[in-house]
């Protein structure tokens, strides 16, 4: 569809006239789009963050096999080697109990020094030697755990895996996604309907012009373009406020949470990378809603 710039400019002017002509209706449609996209945006940052957190947690998911105290260092190293060879194992690391204790103390932070002091001596360390196993795919955790248990209770006392948390998070995130989809779809339909109504008003206002354009042989696209542009424009304008507000809210939220203790547990997605996703999604959805709204009206009311 090779369109001349002159013609394109004309379509934009025509679309702008349409918005101006029904300024109140356009305002209502822009507001509806803005509300829809605002709610969509809030869901979006939540959903993105839940996914992000789940991903972060997945990285931390590891199987911890506590070894029997009867094993020698050489046996332990050999077992680590064997586990490393299992299919689906990304990494198997032997952590002797003194290293384990040090790690625990470090995680505990400043107060840990005093707390762990007494445990550090020979024969005092209550921890077992452990092998941590990182799976290539978090879904394999359960089967890997069984395989490791199969090495026998003479070698391995017990096996633990933090599988529960990620599953719950992932379930929550897919549930959230479904709610967003259903709720968002309802709102989007409403907004599209409002846009289609303003486009309908423009079509009615321009009925005679359209009739004459048809009579003298204007192409169907020539007649339709201004309406699509008008709808997309309403969607685009409706997207500006939600983007600004949603990102501001997120920035504030991020600053507050990121500053405090919570940062260690709640890993929020960085503002910039989330901002790009959210901005693109909201604008794209706004334009899509607007265009769909005009398509509805053009199909129903514009005979070409």
């Amino acid at each position: 569809m090779g369109m001349k710039i002159e013609t394109m400019m004309r379509h934009f002017r025509e679309a702008y006239r349409g918005v101006r002509r029904n300024s109140w209706m356009s305002f209502a449609a822009v507001s509806a789009v803005a509300v829809t996209l605002f709610i969509f945006g809030l869901f979006l940052i939540t959903a993105f963050n839940v996914r992000y957190m789940a991903g972060e947690l997945e990285k931390q998911v590891a199987i911890r096999a506590a070894l029997s105290p009867s094993m020698t260092g050489a046996q332990e190293r050999q077992l680590t080697e064997q586990i490393q060879q299992l299919p689906g194992v990304k990494n198997a690391t032997l952590i002797p109990k003194n290293v384990g204790l040090r790690q625990m103390r470090d995680e505990w932070g400043p107060g840990g020094e005093q707390l762990f002091k007494d445990l550090d001596g020979e024969g005092q360390n209550p921890l077992p030697d452990i092998i941590t196993v990182e799976p290539t795919d978090p879904k394999n955790v359960e089967s890997l755990k069984k395989q490791i248990e199969n090495f026998g209770s003479d070698k391995i006392e017990r096996v633990e895996a933090g599988e529960g948390v990620t599953d719950k998070l992932l379930n929550f995130s897919s549930m959230l996604r479904n709610i967003v989809l259903i709720f968002g779809l309802g709102l989007a339909v409403l907004a599209a309907f409002l846009i289609s109504n303003t486009i309908k008003l423009t079509i009615i206002a321009r009925q005679r012009e359209i009739e004459i354009q048809r009579l003298v042989g204007a192409s169907n696209w020539f007649i339709r373009w201004p309406f699509f542009i008008e709808g997309a424009f309403i969607g685009l304008v409706g997207a500006i406020f939600p983007v600004v507000i949603v990102l501001t809210i997120y920035q504030v939220f991020y600053n507050v949470l990121g500053a405090g203790e919570a940062a260690a547990i709640l890993k929020l997605m960085p503002v910039v990378s989330l901002g790009i996703y959210v901005t693109i999604s909201i604008f794209a959805l706004g334009v899509a809603i607007g265009t769909i709204g005009s398509i509805i009206s053009v199909r129903r009311f514009l005979k070409v």
């Binding site: 002159e6 013609t7 004309r10 012009e209 004459i212 354009q213 042989g217 192409s219 020539f222």
Partner: peptide
């Protein structure tokens, strides 16, 4: 007649040429 009431005689005629994408 079916003229566009808010356009002058000239504009009404030009409108038909614009509709078929005649160069300005």
């Amino acid at each position: 007649f079916k003229l566009l009431p808010n356009m002058t005689a000239y504009e009404n005629v030009a409108f038909a040429m614009e509709a078929v994408e005649t160069p300005k």
